[in-house]
Every structure is written in structure tokens, then in C-alpha cells.
Design a binder for these strands. Structure first.
Lengths: 104, 104
DNA sequence: GACCTCAGTAAGTTGACACTAACGTTAGCC
DNA sequence: GGCTAACGTTAGTGTCAACTTACTGAGGTC
């Protein structure tokens, strides 16, 4: 999870992820969407791939990338530990308080 | 979301969040749980607070902190955009493929 | 083979940030 | 007031990573 988290903490990489979310694109196409140099994008793609957040498909000299949403699964579980469960605890506490108040 | 994401990208801050997830603790108690100096923890708490991930309650000279799971809401939505929806698309595509195969 | 295209790699620079040590601040106690 | 406890803040340092420029490599096309 560490790798995925650090990967999407970078705004540019989130933008790249959105770009290849619904269709695969070549490294060149992706690079054209930004104002930084192509090597910079190449490095970002390397980080995303290493984190399991994108999939790479080679075709001749081209490399196609597309998002790999499964890579965010662990991260989602982590958040649910803080979001869903914690909120459930708060909700339960609030309801108990409510019942206590009605009785009193 | 940017702030929350960068905040939890740091392992030490995730550890702090887990520590104050279910009960509030003073800055000193939190610091004791780690091997870094107290000021370091204080700075981490500042980042977490700025990102809306913890709540601070002052009582005399003490400061109590506790997790604020609502702060992760936006982040959860971002992940769902990639996880749930994308998987739904893949599932739908797979089912269409399946239907096509049965007919053929 | 010569050449072009698409893309990753290497080296170096710069800025961000996690950390420490020293200092400042606020609240309570004698 | 003087003292202590609990924290935060500041200044400085080392490390990491995002970026650029220059170079390298793999695949086609003639």
C-alpha cells in the first residue's frame, strides 16, 4: 500500500491516472497532455507501474498504459478502517446517547 | 484532498492516526509511542490537523488529539471513482462479452 | 546499413520535508 | 514572583524526489 499511497500523493500522477482510466494511451500521448518533458512523464509512469496502479502493454516501439484500479484496493481498505468503522462507532454512540436522553 | 493525501502518505502520520483512532491522547502520550523527538511529533500533529484528519482539544496546558475520519471522505470518493466505477465498467464489459459468446 | 520514431535511462540540480537542538509560550502550583 | 510541566515554534541539516538535459536502445522503413 505504501507505494500506491506515495504514488497518488503526487498531483501529476493522479492526473495521469485519470487520463488512462477509461482507455489506454501511449507514453507520448500522455506526455503531450502536460507541460513537463517526456522523460518526467516516463518516470512518473515507472512509479505508477511499480506501485501496480497502471498496466503496460508494448506494441512495437510504442507502450500503451491503462489504469489498474485493483492497485487501489488495499488503500481503500485502509480508508474504510478509518471511515466506515469509525463512523459506525460514532453513530452507535450517538444512538445510545439519544436513547438515554429519551429515558431521562 | 491534496492535504489529506500528502498527510497520510507519511508512514509515521498513519501510525499516529491509528493511535488516536478510538480514543484521544495528549501530544506527550503520542510522542512517547515513538522514538523520534517530541517536536517531530508535534509537527506531524500540525500537518494532520491542517489536513483536517485530527481534532485538537486544549485542556490547561495539555492538548488532546483524536482522529477525524470525516477528513478522509473526499479521498474515499476519489478512490471510488477508480475502484467501484471502473470495476463496474469492467464487469459490464465482461458480461456483454459473455452474452455475445453464448449467442454465437 | 542508414535513418527516423518512440521511449526509457543517467547525471545533475533544485525544492520539499522529516528530523534535531535550542528557544518561546501558556497554565498551574508554591 | 519564581518554578515546573506540557507543548509549540524556529533555524539549520540531511535526504529524497521531481524535474531538465543529454544520451541510449529498440523497432520500423527505405
Amino acid at each position: 500500500m505504501e507505494a500506491a499511497l506515495k504514488a497518488i500523493a503526487e498531483p501529476r500522477r493522479r492526473a495521469i491516472l485519470r487520463l488512462v482510466r477509461d482507455e489506454e494511451r501511449t507514453a507520448g500521448e500522455i506526455a503531450e497532455a502536460f507541460e513537463v518533458t517526456r522523460p518526467a512523464i516516463s518516470q512518473h509512469l515507472g512509479v505508477l507501474k511499480e506501485a501496480g496502479l497502471v498496466h503496460e502493454r508494448r506494441e512495437g516501439t510504442r507502450r500503451y498504459y491503462r489504469a489498474r484500479p485493483q492497485g487501489l484496493h488495499e488503500l481503500k481498505l485502509f480508508l474504510e478502517e478509518f471511515w466506515d468503522e469509525r463512523l459506525a462507532v460514532l453513530k452507535e454512540a450517538a444512538e445510545q446517547e439519544e436513547r438515554r436522553r429519551r429515558r431521562g
